[in-house]
Amino acid sequence: MAAGISCPPNTIVVFSDIGCPWASLALHWLRRESASRELVIEHRAFPLELFNRRGTPKPILDAEIAVIASTEPELGWRPWQRAESEYPVTMLPALEAVRAARSPEVGGARAADQLDAALRKAFYVDSRTISLYSEIISVAEECSELDAARLAWELRRGHHREAVHEDFEISSSDLVQGSPHVFLPGGRSVHNPGVSFAWTAPYGQGFPVIREYDPGVWRALVHASISTSRQQKEENDVDRLG
C-alpha cells in the first residue's frame, strides 16, 4: 500500500464522493462481487466540492447519470424527480455521516458501507435531498447495521467532520488520482477501474461517452484482494509460530 494509506487484509479502501456517478457505478460492482465473501469496503472521502470550490453542476451530473444508467440499467437510476430547488447542493454532510458510521459506537465499517449504499440509492434512484441532516438520518433509520440515534448524536457534535477534511488532504496528494480510487491489500491501487470515458466537448459543455466498459475488472479486483488477504494471513500465522 502506498505510504499514508492503510489497507488491512480483507479490506478494500475506496476514496470517492457520493455525488460522483462513476464512483457509484464502481461501488455497485464491488459490492456485488464481494457480497458473499469476507471483504469489507472502507470508505474514505474524495470531496469534489472542496477540490472544485463548488457543488458539481446539475447539468454535468445529469449527463453522466444518463450515460451510466443507459449502459448499466441494473442500477435503476432515474432522472431527478423533484423540484430543482430540492436538489442537493452539497455532499459533505452525507460524506461525514458515512465516516461517522465507521465508528464502533455507530456500527463499524460494514455499517458505513450499508449507509453509503443507501445514501447513493436515495440520491440516484429516489431523488432524496441527502444534503439535509434530517434526510440523512431518515435514510440511516432504514439501515439495519447501524445505530441511527447514535449517528444523529455524533453528527450534532461534528465529531467526524475533521476526518472528511483529513481525507481531503490525502486526496489532494499524489496518492489519490480521483473519485473513485480503489486501494487493495498488498499495495495495488487503481483509479476508476472497469470504465473509460471522454467528453464530446470540453467538460460540462458536451456529453460523456463511455469508450470501454468491462464489469469483469471488478470481479478480478475482488478475487485478487481475497487471494492477497489469504496470503497475508498465512504469512502472519507463520510469523507467530516462528
Rank of each mutant, 00 (worst) to 15 (best):
M1I: 05
A2D: 06
A3Y: 11
A3C: 04
A3K: 09
I5N: 04
P9M: 13
I12D: 00
V13K: 02
V14N: 02
D17N: 05
G19P: 01
P21M: 10
A23K: 01
W29H: 12
L30E: 00
R31C: 14
R31V: 04
E38S: 15
E42P: 04
R44A: 03
E49K: 03
E49C: 04
N52G: 05
R53A: 15
R54F: 03
G55C: 05
K58L: 07
I60E: 08
I60D: 06
L61K: 08
D62H: 14
A63S: 14
I65P: 00
I65W: 06
A66I: 10
A66M: 07
V67N: 00
V67G: 02
L75E: 06
Q81Y: 04
E86T: 13
P88L: 15
V89P: 01
A94H: 02
L95H: 03
E96M: 14
E96S: 13
R99S: 03
A100M: 06
R102I: 00
S103I: 03
S103H: 11
E105T: 07
G107P: 05
G107D: 03
G108L: 03
R110Y: 04
R110A: 10
R110I: 08
A112M: 04
L115Q: 00
L119M: 11
R120C: 09
F123L: 14
S127C: 11
I130E: 01
S131C: 12
Y133D: 14
I137P: 01
S138F: 07
S138E: 08
S138M: 08
S138Q: 12
A140G: 11
A140S: 10
E141Y: 03
E141D: 12
R150H: 11
A152Q: 14
A152N: 10
A152V: 13
W153T: 05
L155V: 13
R156S: 15
R157F: 12
H159E: 13
E162H: 09
E162M: 15
E162G: 14
A163I: 08
E166I: 05
F168H: 00
I170S: 01
I170Y: 00
S173W: 05
L175N: 03
L175G: 02
Q177M: 06
Q177I: 06
S179M: 03
H181E: 01
L184I: 08
P185R: 01
G186Y: 02
G187F: 06
S189N: 14
S189F: 02
H191C: 05
H191M: 08
G194M: 02
A198F: 06
A198K: 14
T200E: 15
Q205R: 12
F207L: 08
I210P: 03
E212F: 12
Y213S: 05
D214A: 15
V217F: 01
V217H: 00
W218R: 02
L221T: 09
V222E: 02
H223I: 08
H223F: 09
A224T: 07
I226D: 09
T228F: 01
S229Q: 03
S229Y: 02
S229W: 01
R230Y: 08
Q231T: 14
E234T: 10
D237C: 07
V238F: 06
